[in-house]
């Protein structure tokens, strides 16, 4: 199953010049690294407010690039009724983030190739 919603991610790649799309992917990667670390820290500290706030940012970043799986998981993390403890949630989020980044990298490479084609 794809980590990305093609109607969003591919549309983004088509709408924007390749360098802009690549910049977005790089920014997303930075966001993921930072937010995943913050999420882990908040989970370990038992700070639920901070945990939910970081999960919200993560969901927003994921939604922007069409990383739907990650977005959904982040929204579950935001919901206090989900009952999923941070210790279980963080590894899932990290795995989904890696999958989304991999697919986005492929998309970025293809966008670059398409634009270079005569």
């Amino acid at each position: 199953m794809s980590a990305l919603d093609p109607s969003i991610a591919e549309q983004l790649a088509q709408d924007l010049p390749p360098e802009d799309f690549r910049r977005i992917v790089e920014t997303f990667e930075d966001d993921l690294g930072r937010l995943a670390a913050e999420l882990e820290r908040a989970g370990l500290a038992g700070s639920l407010d901070a945990y939910r706030r970081v999960a919200h940012s993560l969901a927003g970043a994921a939604a922007a690039v069409g990383a739907v799986m990650l977005e959904r998981t982040a929204r579950v993390a935001m919901d206090p009724r989900s009952g999923m403890p941070p210790a279980q949630m963080v590894p899932i989020i990290r795995a989904q983030a890696a999958a989304a980044l991999q697919e986005l990298a492929v998309l970025a490479a293809r966008a670059g190739d398409d634009s270079a084609a005569p």
């Binding site: 983004l12 924007l16 977005i24 940012s57």
Partner: peptide
């Protein structure tokens, strides 16, 4: 916008 990815997407769209 507080999420850099979101901000970058909006900036790219409006460039």
């Amino acid at each position: 916008e507080d999420t850099p990815t979101q901000a970058e997407v909006a900036k790219a769209h409006l460039r």
